[in-house]
Design a binder for these strands. Structure first.
Lengths: 344, 344
DNA sequence: ATGAAAGCGCTAACAG
DNA sequence: CTGTTAGCGCTTTCAT
């Protein structure tokens, strides 16, 4: 069943069917109605492939993530899909699973399907691969790491705002021995978080000497706390480079019979959904995944509709900010003093 | 840049280019080499839309899930994608988000993009919608609920095997007051789990009188335990219809100062990734998401390659089985007796 | 306002 | 073994 069949049955030309379906206003209301009746009766759905072929636009956006199973991404994918549906787009989701072969395939798949734009939300893509996309003038949107070039937009994350809030929150609770568990430091995003921590501590004159490198995984968080405990300069609070790390810290603390937050305050980063469900619920720096997805989608839409490549306003900004939950409390010493005060 | 450009530069016809690219064996090795050289030099990628148009096969499989943010699904999506990549397929992921409008759109999107098959892993799709797909003879694969029809495959989950193991495990640990927190009972999959529990309890002559209806959410699990505690016939163990429920139970127990597993043994169902990361790690009935994804993909591939619609062997079976972790222990009374014995 | 016809990039029959 | 050509289903000039 194709457009010709509809045309025949509605006794009009295929051009008219096409116009009716695409709601071209100049088409006669009578005819349009006739066409639609047939379309509905036969349950006709236009062939998107054919449309794409002639129009040169696939109405597909690529979305590259590290792994869908990383809890950071599902929310993003969902939001992206919601927006796609609203705008009559589909999304071509590829995950790199940290495998260079898959990254290459990812790019290849994008090009073969002729996507109208790609959001790259994974860290550490080879520049040479992206060259293929840039060469074809495929609109691109990055997080943090994008080059300053035509057709590419960038979402800049303001790590400092949220991390500063976190540090000051801890300081206000009288914590002075505040540790930081970083992510893998070759990641720009992990490095930026660490630097934000350093700066925030410096601003309020606290020493930032309890720093452990983690790997953004739960296991990494567990290992980090172990190291911290072994080092014997026990922190009373620990700020983590992401939520999974924080969850690992909480888990390890549990195994050491340390109470969170009574014995140790913990703050995460990202605010993945799961952070609400830990015991206790995790205080964390939110980097809104839905906001990020929205910005990415908007950036792509903007670029697609563009006529002249007026190269500006392709920088977007995402603020981070502290979400207070239950994993932070007054520093232990202060807390005990307060309690004994009450006891009297 | 298109196939003609390649043809021109390699001084052959487009047909030869097409053959070379598709590795048709009859093409002369010399020419093929010449073609590939040009292809590689220009970075030419065939246009999938055009291919799909002429071949009638889109090389896209639809994948319908409830919500990507439901922790049950990411693993499935990832496995499905891995298989898709291996087989030169793409996946069109749609989520219904429990919204009838979105379900309808989901089907429409599948048809418009002319998918070669659809895996429906969401519960409670309108039959009338699926009619559209069946009408077009789009191969379909369901979990549990599929009709017995041509082009339709079904993955039957053997809920009993795993749930029986769970019940017997609990019984072996001397639990007698075993509660069950069900899912929403209008869901076939939830009902099946409850029935499996009933049967398993009956088999070993234990009364199954502590049953609460939950909703497969963390909050539901919390509420369920609250009810159970209020009911005053405190269970020593609780089996949950899914892992999120179990996590809610654990959380609620924590708030009541009940220790898991010392005071209460908890078993989940599904074995989502998260189950390994709760405190304590959750003993649960595994319904392997990767296995499920593999079966679904294979079912679709099978149907696609099929010539005659030989209507048989489109039933697949998925076994469930108990994974022991740390959330179960001897029933409290027995446990204490054992401890005091040791003390002597 | 409507229709005829060209053509999007590719594959597959058919001819040579 | 290779080339010529028709056509996949649709949109879009260009006439009318």
């Amino acid at each position: 069943m194709d457009i010709r069949e509809i045309a025949r049955r509605a006794r009009v030309s295929t051009a008219t069917v096409s116009r009716a379906i695409n709601r071209v206003p100049t088409v006669d209301a009578q005819l349009a109605k006739r066409v639609w009746r047939v379309v509905d009766k036969l349950g006709y759905y236009p062939n998107t492939q054919a449309r794409a072929l002639v129009s040169g636009r696939s109405r597909i956006f690529g979305l590259v993530v590290s792994e869908i199973t990383n809890p950071f991404f599902p929310e993003i994918v969902q939001t992206f899909e919601n927006l796609a549906v609203e705008n009559n787009y589909e999304i071509l989701l590829t995950s790199t699973v940290h495998d260079p072969k898959r990254m290459e395939l990812s790019v290849r798949r994008m090009i073969e399907r002729r996507v109208d734009g790609v959001a790259i939300l994974t860290f550490g893509m080879e520049d040479s691969l992206l060259e293929h996309l840039r060469f074809r003038k495929v609109p691109l949107v990055f997080v943090d790491v994008g080059p300053d070039a035509p057709h590419v937009a960038n979402i800049r994350i303001d790590y400092l705002s949220g991390i500063r809030q976190a540090v000051q929150h801890l300081a206000a609770l009288r914590h002075t021995r505040i540790a930081f568990v970083s992510g893998p430091l070759q990641l720009k995003s992990a490095l930026a978080r660490k630097n934000a921590f350093l700066q925030s501590m410096a601003e309020i004159g606290l020493p930032a000497n309890l720093i452990v490198e983690g790997d953004h995984s739960l296991e990494g968080g567990m290992g980090a706390l172990t190291k911290l405990i072994a080092s014997n300069c026990c922190p009373t609070a620990v700020l983590c480079s992401n939520d999974m790390t924080a969850i690992g810290v909480i888990r390890e603390a549990y195994d050491h019979d340390m109470k969170i937050p009574a014995d140790l305050s913990v703050i995460g980063f990202d605010d993945i959904r799961l952070a609400q469900f830990t015991t206790p619920p995790l205080t964390t720096v939110q980097m809104s995944q839905t906001e990020l997805a929205k910005l990415a989608f908007r950036a792509l839409m903007n670029e697609v509709g563009k006529v002249s490549p007026n190269h500006r306003m392709n920088e977007y900004r995402l603020i981070t900010s502290l979400i207070l939950r239950r994993s932070t409390e007054l520093a232990p010493s202060v807390n005990e003093r307060k309690k004994s005060l009450k006891a009297k």
